[in-house]
Amino acid sequence: MSLPIILQPGEGQSVQIRTSTCTFKATGKDTKGQFGLFEFVMEPGSTGASPHIHKQLTEMFYVVEGLVEMVLSDRTVAAQPGAFILVPENTPHGFSNPGQTPAKLLIMFCPADSREQYFEGLAELTKDGRQPSQKELLELMQQFDQYPVP
């Protein structure tokens, strides 16, 4: 039997990716693989994710604070707090914080798989300001259904 999870603000396992913090609120392990929900906080001027696709998962974004610039296929959207974006599989997307204040996103992945391992791997590759090679990034991405788009 699964138990309820209650996480107060600031609680949950977190990883640091450059100047962004990703906190795992619910993972596939918690939801029998149905979905994962992560809180992603980006400092002003930071890139969250360069354009990429997922072949098997749907990703959803909900802007909690700040301004998030979402790239979706061939359009760019300035997403304000309260904005919701659903990104079906095989849809190019990426996001960044072009604003002057931190931005906070909730990101949901369906199905969850073990998506948190991608963020843990990315945190490890970028630890202490390290710049990973393109080969290292591609290997990590492909393990977790993520493929870059030019």
Rank of each mutant, 00 (worst) to 15 (best):
L7C: 11
M42H: 02
Q131R: 12
T21W: 04
R115T: 07
V87G: 05
L7A: 15
Y147M: 14
T58A: 15
L86G: 10
K25Q: 10
V41G: 03
P92S: 09
L106Q: 08
P92Q: 14
R115M: 08
Y62F: 14
M70I: 12
K25A: 07
R115P: 00
P44Q: 10
V149F: 03
S133N: 08
L72C: 09
I85P: 15
E65G: 08
K104S: 11
P92I: 11
E65C: 00
P92K: 14
I5H: 01
R18C: 09
G10P: 08
T76M: 13
Q131D: 10
A79D: 07
L72R: 14
L67T: 15
V87Y: 03
S114P: 00
V68H: 05
G82I: 01
I53L: 03
M108F: 10
P132S: 09
F95P: 11
S2K: 13
I53M: 04
E120V: 06
L7K: 15
E59I: 09
M42F: 03
A26D: 10
F61V: 05
K135I: 13
S114G: 01
P111H: 01
F35D: 00
E43L: 10
T23G: 05
D113T: 04
V149D: 00
V64F: 05
S73L: 01
S133Q: 04
P132G: 10
P4N: 08
T126Y: 07
K127V: 00
E124K: 03
E59L: 05
P102G: 14
C110Y: 03
E59Y: 04
S14P: 14
F35N: 08
P51W: 11
T101M: 13
T91S: 11
Q13S: 04
Q80R: 12
I85L: 15
S114M: 02
C110V: 11
Y62Q: 12
A112Y: 06
V68L: 09
M108H: 04
V87A: 03
A49C: 04
V87R: 06
Q34I: 05
P88T: 02
M108I: 07
E89T: 09
P132L: 12
P111D: 00
V71M: 12
Q8V: 03
F40C: 02
L106K: 06
G33V: 04
L7M: 12
Y62E: 12
F38N: 02
S50V: 09
L137C: 00
L3H: 14
G82S: 01
R130I: 09
E136M: 05
D30G: 07
F119V: 01
G99H: 08
V63W: 10
P111T: 08
P98A: 01
G45P: 15
V64Q: 14
G129A: 07
K135T: 14
T23C: 05
E136K: 06
L106N: 11
L72I: 15
C22Y: 13
S73C: 02
I17C: 01
K25D: 05
P111V: 08
K135Q: 15
K104G: 01
A79I: 14
H54W: 13
K135C: 05
